[in-house]
């Protein structure tokens, strides 16, 4: 994958920190001298709803949003959200996903069913899936809230042309200084999980 020309759709549950992830990627693209657009979701969906954020990087980007079949990567912070976002993925694209399950209120109240074993069953011959337990990794780093940065670490490993130091500078630019050390640990954890599986 080429980080210089890429459309990344980040999907998660409101409150999981998708905005920080998109700002991190936007910062990295800007430092590479690329054109970049990021579309964010604010407001009602942030209250536990499904939240999509788009990051588009290239020579000259027009639309800030990723439509059906446009994403090179779907970065999903939650299992069912990975499934929901599949229609955005290009044929040949990659799903990078957290195996964590957060049950929506529709499932809690019994109005809907949460599909079992999504990471194992989410497969097809025209896309690839990388599934990691980012919640466990984040908890091992000391804070369950770092799921987003663990996943950024996983994503970063897919771009061998870009150094670890380069990414860490973007981390420094996007997370508050007092949480930097924790987030660096989370990023490293995600990166090493991905490296091992490659």
């Amino acid at each position: 994958m080429d980080f210089n020309n890429i459309d990344i759709l980040i999907i998660g549950v409101g409150g999981q920190g998708t905005l920080l992830a998109s700002r991190f990627l936007g910062d990295a693209a800007m430092r590479l001298g690329r054109d970049v657009k990021v579309s964010e979701v604010h407001g009602m969906s942030q209250r536990g709803g499904s939240v999509e954020t788009c990051v588009r990087i290239g020579e000259n980007i027009a639309s800030p949003i990723i439509d059906r079949g446009m994403a090179d990567v779907v970065l999903a912070f939650e299992s069912a959200e990975a499934l929901r976002a599949l229609g955005y993925l290009k044929p040949g694209g990659s799903v990078i996903m957290n195996t964590q399950e957060i049950l929506p209120m529709t499932v809690v109240t019994g109005a809907a069913v949460y599909p079992e074993s999504i990471p194992e069953r989410l497969s097809g011959d025209n896309f690839s899936v990388t599934a990691v337990d980012a919640l466990r990794a984040a908890e091992e780093c000391g804070n369950a809230k770092c799921v987003n940065v663990v996943l950024l670490g996983v994503l970063s490993a897919h771009f061998p042309g870009i150094s670890e130091e380069f990414w860490k500078k973007s981390l420094e630019n996007t997370v508050p200084a007092k949480f930097l050390e924790l987030n660096v640990r989370a990023f490293d954890a995600g990166r090493s999980i991905a490296m091992k599986s490659m």
Partner: peptide
């Protein structure tokens, strides 16, 4: 026209329609 997109293979019984809806909720 409709853009082509990634599709779950025939060997899997999962469908994107299976994703449960996730409306916003009180925190």
């Amino acid at each position: 026209t409709t853009a082509p997109c990634a599709k779950i293979g025939a060997e899997s019984d999962l469908s994107t329609e299976d994703a449960p809806s996730r409306p916003p909720t009180l925190c």
